[in-house]
Structure formats: structure tokens, C-alpha cells
Design a binder for these strands. Structure first.
Length: 480
DNA sequence: TGAAATGTTGGGGCG
DNA sequence: ACGCCCCAACATTTC
């Protein structure tokens, strides 16, 4: 009887373009697909609440897809470093295959697993595919990591060939005996009371099929306008693929090649293609940074930011979290996040800038909130992006770049559809004051049914004064 | 992947 | 006709 190969799923909850799986099948061995819910490995960022909701449904979808292919998803809970060798022993596995992970704790974990499994004569093989570019493959001229995006983009795309995606196997050879599996319910990934996931259910279809559908829709309807419209939260102009990508329901290589294929020979799609690929590579760049600076999620990349006089302001933080800052575009974004587990990218920047620069609340606080509430929460992208806005990052926005929420609102949500959707109490305000209701006259406010301080908050800080305060504080940091 | 302050230019109103 | 002022529109500088 042939010894099985364990395929250990992590951030790669799919069957297509899965090299660990393809290689296992090529070995001709029975396959035992496994997912381990590991909340115990020290030093790791435990998945946030919205991610856990997504994970539940993604695992359910993967289990169904595996069943269709004549296989089964084995679920276990515990420390991967202990659970996996025990399971491998129990199954008499000859090998464990997995897609490489890039979180700071992952390399230690993988090293230790390699030792333990090797000790039992079990091969441990790691495969690429979660990223387009392995972090250590893209190097500057003197062999170091990149700190700036544009050279990273040039070097990566010039030197690395992105392999074509592997098709999903139709069937997986089953072992003669299945090991025990925990139930998905026992993972307790879903909210109970209150059940806050209604908006998530309305918005998303987690799983590989949902990802494929989203990709198809995006390529057909939004790629053409992507370059011009991707900053517009009032239009369905973004791909919405991030949560699928974060859980590995689709691989970046699949997105890369699918976009290239559809744009091939169509000049009208060339610009959209390029901008979309650049967005994919921002994710790559974030992982590149994280792999060389593993403290990126906790510590400012620029050490002088350690001394920044951040403010502790629980009430202001709470107003931000719940979308009650009095700045319509910020509140719309924060409410979209709370309701759907997602926020438009442009609005993320505006909301982040507001927390950091208007409220002077540490970027790590915003990072933690996003980590818990985003269905696409991604350690590298989240950390790198918050540091980018704070100005403490590698390739960061200069300290004096302070977003003005009402100008950003007027520019990117010109007819106010986004704000009216998420801040319905302002829906009847005319366009010209929608993004700055504090400037509307009493007559206009009354006609729109708005009473500032009652039906909608007055601004919790004055942006002009807050901007001056932030500029002074950030300037002092430079010793100026 | 900014915004605001400051500088420059040029058209038009006006004495 | 001319100088002067105002100010929008745009450019540049500064934060």
C-alpha cells in the first residue's frame, strides 16, 4: 500500500494553480489534504474576526471541492509544529507538501517542521505560488532588498518569469484510511451573539468558485476603466479580489496571466492591465519588505518614529472606528468596513490619514482595527500600507502629505453616491456641501433633514487646526 | 497614491 | 488710450 502525501493548506485554499498539490499527484501517492487552525504558535498574528468568518466559508468551499474530487479535507486544531508531525506519523505519510508562507513566524515554523519530519524520514517540501516573486529572488545591484517600489517593480518584472497557472486536478487519489478530522463547527470561526456577519454574507462569496466569478466579472467589466476609475469609491471599478487573494482562493499568477490574456491585442485594455499588475506587485513589495524587516507590523521602519508624540484618545478612536467622525468620506469608509469587511482602497488611505494625522493616534492602532475587521486582512499589505500613510515606512508618503477629507471626497466621490450609500442620514444634502456639511447653511441642512450634532456628528476635530498640529509634530521629528 | 500658500499672468472693469 | 485694481486661472513653492 502506497504511503500518502499530506498536502498542508494554509493561505492557499484552492485546487487550481497549486504546485504542492500538483507535485503530490505527480508522485502517484494518495493525498491527505489538511488544514490546521493554529491559534497557538507564539509570535503570530492570530486571524481577526472578519478573516475568521471568511476562513470558515472558504474551508467549507474547499472541503466541498475536495469531496467532488473524491477526496476529503482533514481539519485539525493546535500548534502546527506538533499537529503536523503527529498526523504524518499517524497516516504513515511519506511527505508533507505545502505552499511557502511569508509571515515572520512562518520561516521558523517551517524550519522546525523540516527537522522534525526529516527526523521521521518524512520529506517536507515547500512550493511557491502564494507570491509572484520569492522575496529573496528580487535583489538590488548590490544584492540587498529594495526599499522603494518603482525599482522593485522594474527589477522584478524584468528578471522573473511568472509560470503559467496549473489546472485544478479533477480527482485526487484517496488514502485507504482517512485520519480523524475535527468538524468545521468546532473551529468556532463564526460570530455567535451578536451575529454581525449579515453584511458580509450579502457582499461576498468566499471560496475558489466565488473568486473565479469575481475575476471574470472584473476582467469583463472593469479592467478597461481600471486605470482611470480605480480611485472612485462610487463606481464598481476595483477588482474586489483582495479577500480571495488573501486566502489564496486564487493565485496571483492566475490573476496576472488572466489579465494579460484578456488584454492581449487590445490597446484599450493596455493601461488598465498595467495598473492592475502594478497593484498586484504592491502586494509583492509588501511581502518583500516584510521578509527582510520582520518587525514591520509592529515597529516603524524609520526608527525616529519611535519617539513620535502619539495621542491616546479612546473616544476619538471609537468615533473613527464606528464612522462617527463628522467627516462624511471617513465615516462612509469606516461604515463600509464595519458592514462588509471591506473598504475601497482610496478611502482606506483617507481614513488612515485621518486617524494618524488628524487624530495623532498611532498607526498600529489603526492597523489592529483593520486586521480585525477586514476580510482581506493581510499582514504584509496592512503593515506596509499603514506605515506608508504614517510616513514611517520604507517608500513612505512624505510627512507633510495630509489628506483633506472634504477635498478627497469631492474629488473621488463627486456626485456623493458613496457617502449617500453609507451615511444615509446625509443623503438629501446637495452635492456641493455633502462632503462638508458643517459649511451648509441652516436652511439647506433643515431641508435635508440634517441636524449637526444630532442626526450626524459635528467634526470631532477641526481639520485645518489638526493639519497644522500634525505638520508641527512631524516636522519636529525631523529635527526641524 | 496632497494641500495650502504664494507667485505669476492676463483679461476685464473702471476712472 | 492708459494705468490701476481685482481676481480667476494656472504655476510654483512650501509644508
Amino acid at each position: 500500500m502506497s504511503q500518502p502525501i499530506i498536502v498542508w493548506f494554509r493561505h492557499d485554499l484552492r485546487l487550481h494553480d497549486h504546485r504542492a498539490l500538483v507535485r503530490a499527484i505527480a508522485e502517484g501517492a494518495p493525498i491527505v489534504p489538511v488544514y490546521i487552525l493554529d491559534d497557538e504558535t507564539p509570535g503570530q498574528w492570530r486571524a481577526g474576526a472578519a478573516s475568521r468568518w471568511w476562513l470558515h466559508h472558504s474551508l467549507a468551499a474547499l472541503a466541498t471541492d475536495l469531496a467532488t474530487a473524491g477526496s476529503k479535507l482533514i481539519l485539525r486544531r493546535g500548534k502546527a509544529v506538533e499537529v503536523l508531525p503527529a498526523l504524518a506519523h499517524d497516516c504513515r505519510a511519506r511527505a508533507v507538501h505545502t505552499s511557502r508562507a511569508y509571515q515572520p513566524w512562518a520561516s521558523n515554523l517551517e524550519e522546525e517542521l523540516n527537522e522534525r519530519l526529516h527526523h521521521d524520514d518524512i520529506a517536507f517540501r515547500r512550493f511557491s505560488g502564494t507570491l509572484l516573486f520569492e522575496p529573496e529572488v528580487v535583489k538590488t545591484k548590490d544584492g540587498g532588498p529594495f526599499k522603494v517600489y518603482s525599482p522593485f517593480w522594474r527589477a522584478a518584472t524584468a528578471t522573473v518569469d511568472i509560470p503559467k497557472p496549473e489546472p485544478a486536478p479533477r480527482t485526487l487519489p484517496a488514502p485507504s484510511r482517512w485520519p480523524h478530522s475535527d468538524t468545521l463547527a468546532s473551529f468556532e470561526l463564526l460570530p455567535t451573539r451578536p451575529d454581525w456577519a449579515g453584511g458580509l454574507r450579502e457582499t461576498w462569496t468566499p471560496g475558489e468558485a466565488g473568486a473565479a466569478a469575481r475575476l471574470k466579472t472584473f476582467l469583463k467589466s472593469a479592467l478597461a476603466g481600471y486605470a482611470d476609475d480605480r480611485n472612485r469609491p462610487d463606481l464598481p471599478a476595483t477588482s474586489q479580489l483582495s479577500p480571495h487573494l488573501a486566502h489564496g482562493e486564487v493565485s496571483p499568477a492566475t490573476l496576472w496571466h488572466a489579465a494579460h490574456a484578456i488584454a492581449d491585442g487590445k490597446p484599450a485594455l493596455a493601461k488598465g492591465l498595467e495598473v492592475f499588475c502594478k497593484e498586484l506587485v504592491w502586494r509583492e513589495f509588501s511581502y518583500h519588505l516584510l521578509s527582510y524587516w520582520p518587525t514591520l507590523p509592529e515597529k516603524p521602519f524609520r526608527p525616529e518614529f519611535e519617539n513620535f508624540p502619539w495621542v491616546t484618545a479612546p473616544e476619538l478612536l471609537h468615533a473613527w472606528q464606528r464612522g462617527r467622525t463628522g467627516y462624511p468620506i471617513v465615516d462612509a469608509g469606516m461604515r463600509e468596513l464595519w458592514h462588509t469587511g471591506y473598504m475601497h482602497n482610496r478611502v482606506r488611505m483617507i481614513a488612515a490619514s485621518f486617524l494618524i494625522k488628524d487624530l495623532l493616534i498611532p498607526w498600529q492602532t489603526g492597523e489592529a482595527w483593520f486586521w480585525d475587521t477586514l476580510v482581506d486582512a493581510d499582514l504584509a499589505s496592512n503593515a506596509a500600507s499603514w506605515q506608508w500613510v504614517a510616513g514611517s515606512g520604507a517608500d513612505a508618503a512624505p510627512y507633510f502629505r495630509v489628506f483633506n477629507p472634504s477635498l478627497q471626497g469631492a474629488k473621488f466621490d463627486p456626485a456623493g453616491a458613496y457617502v449617500r450609500k453609507w451615511v444615509p442620514e446625509l443623503a438629501h444634502l446637495p452635492d456641493d456641501v455633502l462632503h462638508r456639511p458643517w459649511d451648509a447653511g441652516d436652511v439647506v441642512l433643515r431641508a435635508a433633514g440634517v441636524t449637526l450634532g444630532k442626526t450626524y456628528p459635528k467634526p470631532i476635530v477641526d481639520h485645518g487646526a489638526a493639519r497644522d498640529r500634525a505638520l508641527a509634530a512631524f516636522k519636529a521629528l525631523r529635527g526641524g
